Computed example of a mutant assay.
Amino acid sequence: MDILQLFEDLMGRVTEDEFELFLVQCWIIWNQRNSVLHGGTVQDPSRLNKHVEDFLKEYRDAQEQLAIQPTTSSMQQRASWIPPSGLAYKLNFDAAVFAGINASGVGTIIRNAMGEVMVALSARGLSVMDSEEAEVLACRRAMEFAMEIGFRELVLEGENVTVRKALLSPRATCSRLGHIYWDIQCMAMGFRDFFVSCVKRSADSVAHSLARQTEEEAGVVGRVSPTCSRGFVLRQWLIYE
């Protein structure tokens, strides 16, 4: 029996909550094993269930906080986030420029067709010359992040029209940022399905908030990372130089 057959068998025997507990327990045990291999210490096994409860609670709280709110009559003129279709995931990204500290910020969030948050990233970047450079660097970092996590059907959505046009152009971009656009286009070929769209900032507010909050944080920190199959939670602290 392989791992997929095991999961299918378990899904037919236990409730969804029990299946989530099992998956998170597996991940914690695997994480502990890797920690010990790389010089870490063994944690008290009796704390396993408490860790699982904390991870699941954090994931569910994040779902509530990042949920897409229904459009009210007073907000009819504001653009709203639209979920992807089928089995694809939608990656929203945004950038922020912090002139006062010579830095930029990257915000990325990936959701499924039900609007559930699969993974999110908040990261501080280098100083940039203009908003286009900030956006295209944020786009490349978001693409790298999605590939690292393992997504293969993706809708890439940002707010910068210039970036979208450059990514969709069949001709090479002969600007100082051309090599970055080329990197993104090459990464796009690694996805089974890949689409690019553009929205107003009001439909991309979460990614914008994630990018802005890096102004107050030293270093670069990855946010809570729940991902994939039936609520399976994968949570990591991701550090980037």
Rank of each mutant, 00 (worst) to 15 (best):
L6D: 02
F7G: 10
D9P: 00
G12F: 03
G12H: 07
V14Y: 06
E16G: 07
D17L: 13
F19T: 04
F19K: 04
W27V: 08
S35T: 11
L37F: 11
L37T: 01
G40L: 00
T41P: 09
V42H: 10
Q43V: 05
D44M: 10
L48V: 09
F55P: 06
K57N: 12
R60C: 05
Q65C: 02
I68L: 12
T71I: 08
T71C: 13
M75W: 07
M75P: 02
M75Q: 14
M75N: 11
Q77W: 08
R78F: 08
W81P: 06
I82V: 14
P83M: 03
S85R: 14
Y89M: 11
K90Q: 02
L91W: 08
L91T: 07
L91R: 02
N92D: 09
D94Y: 03
A95R: 06
V97D: 00
V97Y: 00
F98C: 08
A99I: 10
G100V: 05
N102E: 15
G105D: 10
G107W: 02
G107L: 05
T108M: 12
T108N: 12
A113H: 14
M118I: 12
S122Q: 01
A123E: 14
A123F: 05
R124W: 01
V128S: 01
V128P: 04
M129S: 13
S131G: 04
V136T: 08
V136K: 06
L137S: 09
A138G: 15
A138Q: 04
F145C: 05
G150T: 05
R152W: 04
R152S: 12
R152G: 13
V155S: 00
L156V: 12
E157S: 11
E157G: 02
N160E: 09
S169L: 06
C174T: 08
C174H: 14
S175H: 11
H179V: 12
I180G: 08
I180A: 10
W182M: 14
I184S: 09
I184H: 04
I184M: 13
Q185A: 11
C186R: 13
A188K: 06
G190K: 05
F191P: 02
D193P: 01
F195Y: 12
R201C: 11
S205W: 01
L210T: 05
A211M: 09
T214S: 15
E215V: 08
E216M: 04
A218Y: 04
V221D: 00
P226H: 03
C228G: 07
C228D: 09
S229P: 00
G231A: 05
G231M: 07
V233C: 13
L234Q: 13
R235W: 10
Q236N: 11
L238W: 07
E241A: 09
E241S: 09
